[in-house]
Nucleic acid binder design. Sequence first.
DNA 1: GTTAGCACTCGATATATGAGAGTGCCAATA
DNA 2: TATTGGCACTCTCATATATCGAGTGCTAAC
Lengths: 360, 360
Amino acid sequence: MSFRTLTERENTILSLIVQSYIHDCTPVGSRTLVRRFGLDLSPATIRNTMNDLEEAGLLIQPHTSAGRIPTSLGYRIYVDELMAPKPLSRKERATIRDAVVGEHSGHIRDAATVLDQTVRALGGLTRLLAVSFEPRLDQGTFEKIELVSLGAGKILAVLTIEKGFLRTIVLELEATVNSEALNETSGILNERLSGLPIKIIRESVRERLRDAVAKDPKILKLIVNSSDDIFASPQEDEGIHYWGTPNILSQPEFADRERMVSLMGALEEKEIIVRVLGGHRQEGGLTITIGEENADGEIKFCSVVASPYVVGEVSGSLGVLGPTRMEYSKLVSIVDYTARIVSEVLGEESTEKDLTDEIA
Amino acid sequence: MSFRTLTERENTILSLIVQSYIHDCTPVGSRTLVRRFGLDLSPATIRNTMNDLEEAGLLIQPHTSAGRIPTSLGYRIYVDELMAPKPLSRKERATIRDAVVGEHSGHIRDAATVLDQTVRALGGLTRLLAVSFEPRLDQGTFEKIELVSLGAGKILAVLTIEKGFLRTIVLELEATVNSEALNETSGILNERLSGLPIKIIRESVRERLRDAVAKDPKILKLIVNSSDDIFASPQEDEGIHYWGTPNILSQPEFADRERMVSLMGALEEKEIIVRVLGGHRQEGGLTITIGEENADGEIKFCSVVASPYVVGEVSGSLGVLGPTRMEYSKLVSIVDYTARIVSEVLGEESTEKDLTDEIA
DNA sequence: GTTAGCACTCGATATATGAGAGTGCCAATA
DNA sequence: TATTGGCACTCTCATATATCGAGTGCTAAC
């Protein structure tokens, strides 16, 4: 990653500067560094090293005769090679777990509720903007469909997806339908499609149902014609939860009005979140994206620590967004742990006898 | 409202000051007022009147030797007695209507989608924070319930409520259930409860089903025991849509960091919205709340223009929130019109043959 | 290789100054 | 009697100026 290997001293200095700057948001000078960390070197020596680091592109000076601050590349080196993840305290683990698991032990929550409470906890704990995506159900396996007549030609399709996820859709037919025809249709669908991944179904319903015969073919026809919607991947900008805008707006790096407004606008449009966190889904593990590494101009002052969570074949992602000056060593632990807990909680087959409110 | 009747001149001056201040966000002085509006009076005369208005509590000076700005009470008089609602242009009406009605004429949207697009349009048009509540279904009339087995003891209850609103809930039973028993149960429920308001049902299910006999009584029992959830009024802080935080943050009155952060925090917690807009539901019509008239400290610099929308017996509300310095005369027209259109659109029985995605 | 010393830079802070907009008051006016 | 012109005064805002302090780069000495 770095185009030349840093010396031991350079590593130390870089690390200390990053830590100091993360803590203070103040450019750090040679003298301060020596004093604060009780270094056994003179400021002049530090200055020389700083100069080298600056030439290597890891530090910059906001202006002549100010201290140095890390560049994105500087943070990158720090994150990849220098920092040690900071373990969570028992209390922190408990905070996260309690929030994700939820208070009412007798009450099973759906994914939206779980993630909503998760981002609240995550935002509160990190004092940053916490973000999460609901799971993308179209990665999952189709279990079965039920068709319910709602009267006036409306039909409710209820899709059951592995691990207890549910998706409901209202379809409409001009003719009235009887429940017998609905049962027949759902029977055919379940027989032919059960156990297949949603994605596969979306691509191949037509062929799979081509030779199906039903007494009342118009329902089957409706299903096939609407299959893009029924077996759809959810809209990219749906199922996003976030929390902590005041946190992020309080950060000194957003004192600039312009920057703040553009960030908020980007958040509201959700494109940013989708682009930044969307790519993280179903990938390996926790990722850190720093400053200009984010393609989007609006958040080139921001970093993102994100991790996928996995529930069976279905997955989503969660993470935090904040200024590049963030406490990476702590955040990787927090985000990683949160993602694990969410995986765990959403993966539990609901065994409690209570009810979940899938839609408000 | 005002504790003394204002003279003709006082009315004029107050009105002009309000208009000028709304336009400029600059305290307005006597000389400026005369020049800008070509008044046939000398600045000295205006000063006398201004002094009177200040004593009446309708104007204040930010500091000695600055111009005047209206107080909340000043705005109140203006809104109640002086201003004339500004009619919407054809184009503005079209903008609102198009957003609420939606683009795909062949696609029926659910309330959440409609309101989401509505607040976007409303926020964009007013350059303020637009807010809406989804309808409170528990004001509505229960049409029927369908019970669908999802396997593993899970049952999906689908409630149909007048005007095509839908509510689904997952219930859980330790035993497995057969569809016959479910049909029997839903039959009993529909027979006894159909046509009743949800609210009434919530209060009286027990009595109404006391003497009901079913071959498999445990499902009926589950329904009764879970009735608080099934026929619940939705959580106060659910079903809220808002859009336009960047708009509001760009307003000069939120240059103050502190104020901005506290407003954003309040918004995220949603309590503010609930308290401010929540009360407006099912009430007469459009309401305007100005500055300190809002009980909440966080938004004592804000005003709210809100209106209920009504769909049959069910209603919700929508409106805009912004600094007290807002263009009331225009906003009342916009909010009123938007509420009407939303009422209309949500009230339409869905006749299109297409499908709605009720849950993501 | 490390360090002390020194001249220099530059942002931040405090202070002074003047311009401009506005006010209140009072005596003159129609 | 209501209106007005005139005047002294107030207060903010913008600008200019001086000073302080943290920090730098460079060089010569250790």
